[in-house]
Design a protein around this nucleic acid. Sequence first.
DNA 1: GACATGCTAGACTCCCCAGTCTAGTTCGGT
DNA 2: ACCGAACTAGACTGGGGAGTCTAGCATGTC
Lengths: 190, 190
Amino acid sequence: MPQIHRERVLRAATSSFLTRGYRSSVDEIARRAGVAKQTVYQHFPSKDELFKEVARDLTRRVLIELDAGPRDLRAGLMRVARAYRKRVLGAQGIATLRTVLPEVPRFPALARALYAGGAGALVSRLAAYLSRAMGAGKLRRDDPELAAEIFLGMLVGHDRLKRLFGVGCDEKEARRTARIVDCFLRAYAP
Amino acid sequence: MPQIHRERVLRAATSSFLTRGYRSSVDEIARRAGVAKQTVYQHFPSKDELFKEVARDLTRRVLIELDAGPRDLRAGLMRVARAYRKRVLGAQGIATLRTVLPEVPRFPALARALYAGGAGALVSRLAAYLSRAMGAGKLRRDDPELAAEIFLGMLVGHDRLKRLFGVGCDEKEARRTARIVDCFLRAYAP
DNA sequence: GACATGCTAGACTCCCCAGTCTAGTTCGGT
DNA sequence: ACCGAACTAGACTGGGGAGTCTAGCATGTC
């Protein structure tokens, strides 16, 4: 009999951690998974390890396909912008931060790995993309890494803060995204 | 005999919540304050209320004086930028977010108030400041509120994310601030 | 001196939870 | 038919924490 229930437990744990943070009890996770508590411990040695596994899954989800973008720079950036905003500002992206951040001091090495595998990796790819655009004369030449971080910062920085505090955003999403991308393009016009 | 120990409790609770989050026990707070547990409950009806009080104090600290800035726009923005980065990216600013954010779902009304009294108020003031600069022809005319949010976003957005995950920033602070401010000025040049 | 108030030490109740243990069930492989 | 692996329900242990209670101490006021 193969290990059938690992996935069920992981899914239940994810949803539970996302709504109640590390507070979620193992009993509750087992109940949500429709599984005995003992089964949870058959697959994961401790609550901490289960949590880490969930956190790894969650932070990987902000990564975005970036290759084979359209020729047009603005169209390419718009595609990234829409995708990143959707992932990061969506209910799950916000809940992920609320869940993971308070545990950072307890798992410093894991936290650095989470950043590197998620947002950090995106910065690297985006920097490479911007660097090519700079080489092609479509953008002013400057540190591409900084440009990437500035772009992502203006794209979601303040909206993320608002949503983390439970404050909604009124403006229409599509329009806002476009205005920010145009703002970036003006700042880095050749 | 006046209520001497309220402040001691508040300070101890602040430092305790900042390091261990809501996990901190009332016993520990009392111990840190050098005070009996009962004294804590004489001043605050419950741990939740004590926590709320601490959260209110903490989030007020991101507000920045903005009036009577220098005539020169760039100098004025640099002043805001330095002050905001220092508050938001400093160890205490980061710890504040790690402490407060996970509790947002439990205290939604409080959370909105915290945002409004801290970062939200700053956005309003900054928008007014930028609006004046637009009127004086020093900046391109555009929605000042959006401009303020974009400015703050590019200023701290990605660096805050990094620090929240415990990832340090290598570049020299002063230089980075200046580059971001210049980037904003280019984007909003008349 | 009498009294109220702010405080102290520490015990105590009640509840929750991580992790373990027991005893039994289901099911696939051989 | 039998074994072993995955699973179940539920009891149990040990620890910790919120909030209460008691008994007493210190100090300022009348």
